[in-house]
């Protein structure tokens, strides 16, 4: 029997651009642990992203990668998965990328329910552009761009994913990469769209998030299998519960088989 590969084998060796102490290092560790756990051949894995601090992650993983444009990681991944269904396709990015500029794609990727695993590193701030409010920022958090806070209610990613039809919804914490790796393993194993929200502190612009390590707490119940139950949990939640919140028991229905055709047949149809 072959020995399982080590997580290190899934690191590209490229030094991340992230600040020292950034939560995203924990996510990188968790992704490589998960790939090692599943012993996936690196060439059978693709990790796609948009723009932002977290979206730099594909280059740091030893797999195929695509660092695309801001907000469009999910469509990029949708095209790849539809064209190459045998690949394991992971999508990663931040809260601004996924919930603001890419918000529409998030809704429709949940609806489409392709077998993708979407990991959002949520630090409730735009880090790469130096500290503006994101969709998940609380309304009274002041920034240079919104000196009085945004005054806008935060986006509720998990509840929105549930309403939009995602079949697998989980929350992890970058400070617990072993638990997060398990969530990613489960997400990859889920035969449909798996959404994993990761609390990943930005120590540069949101040093207050360093308190998360004292505040996060695991969910004690088994994952909800009914959307109604998951909705109740999500609306009663403090936003710091980790674990698989919802897992649809069936995943995704396979597409119907298609009749075979040929170019010659198509051309014959053009005949008068």
């Amino acid at each position: 029997m072959m020995t399982k590969p080590r997580a290190k084998a899934y690191k590209s060796g490229i030094k991340p651009v992230w600040c020292p102490g950034c939560g995203h290092y924990g996510v990188l560790a968790a992704i490589t642990k998960a790939l090692a756990w599943l012993a996936l051949p690196p060439q059978e894995v693709a990790l796609l992203s948009g723009i932002g601090c977290s979206s730099r992650i594909p280059a740091y993983v030893n797999a195929y990668g695509f660092h695309g444009i801001h907000g469009r990681a999910l469509p990029l991944a949708t095209g790849l998965k539809a064209a190459r269904p045998e690949l394991t396709v992971l999508v990663a990015g931040g809260d601004g990328d996924g919930y603001s500029i890419g918000g529409n794609h998030f809704l429709h990727a949940c609806r489409r329910n392709l077998d993708l695993t979407y990991i959002v590193m949520d630090n409730r701030v735009y880090g790469m552009t130096k500290g503006q409010a994101s969709p998940t920022t609380r309304p009274d958090w002041p920034s240079k761009l919104t000196p009085h806070g945004t005054g806008i209610n935060p986006f509720q990613p998990l509840a929105i994913a549930l309403a939009a039809g995602a079949g697998f919804i989980a929350r992890g914490y970058s400070g617990d990469p072993n638990q997060l790796a398990q969530l990613i393993v489960e997400g990859i194993g889920f035969p449909g769209f798996a959404f994993i929200e990761v609390l990943s502190p930005c120590r540069t612009f949101r040093p207050d998030q360093l308190q998360w390590k004292h505040q996060v707490h695991p969910q004690h119940e088994a994952p909800a299998e009914a959307a109604q139950e998951a909705a109740l949990r999500l609306f009663a939640d403090d936003g710091l519960t980790t674990g698989i919140i919802y897992r649809h028991p069936e995943g995704r229905h396979p597409p119907p088989a298609q009749a075979q055709s040929s170019l010659a047949r198509i051309e014959a149809e053009l005949q008068l």
Partner: peptide, 12 residues
């Protein structure tokens, strides 16, 4: 989305 899906498929 359409053009990014197209790019993703071609990447594959």
């Amino acid at each position: 989305a359409a053009i990014n899906m197209t790019i993703g498929a071609s990447f594959g």
